[in-house]
Amino acid sequence: MEVLMAFVIGFLFMAAVYLILSKSILRIIIGTGLLSHGAHLLILTMGGLTNDAPPVLAEGAKNMADPLPQALILTAIVISFGVTAFFLVLAYRAYQELGTDNIDELRGKLKDD
């Protein structure tokens, strides 16, 4: 399963990087969204994928999934959400103020050019 996941994660990263290299701000943010999905799945996969019980004591299972990567991912999800939200509002404001979605048009012109 981990091998399959490694390929899926690689594919997610590839798609994310391709989107980040595009010109539209919205697509770039979509790309960062895919990138964080890829990263979260990578953490989970590297922690080891098992078909054991969830890491909750009350169920009394013997083998539980590794709780530490899950805690790390939970933190990462929240942080990436905060950043994505900020980034989206930034893009929204950029549309409002500058009237463009194309990052090539957001370039400041050098004075001596």
Partner: peptide, 10 residues
């Protein structure tokens, strides 16, 4: 470049 990053991560 994207393909490279994907392969690298895999």
């Amino acid at each position: 470049i994207a393909l490279g990053v994907g392969i690298m991560v895999t």
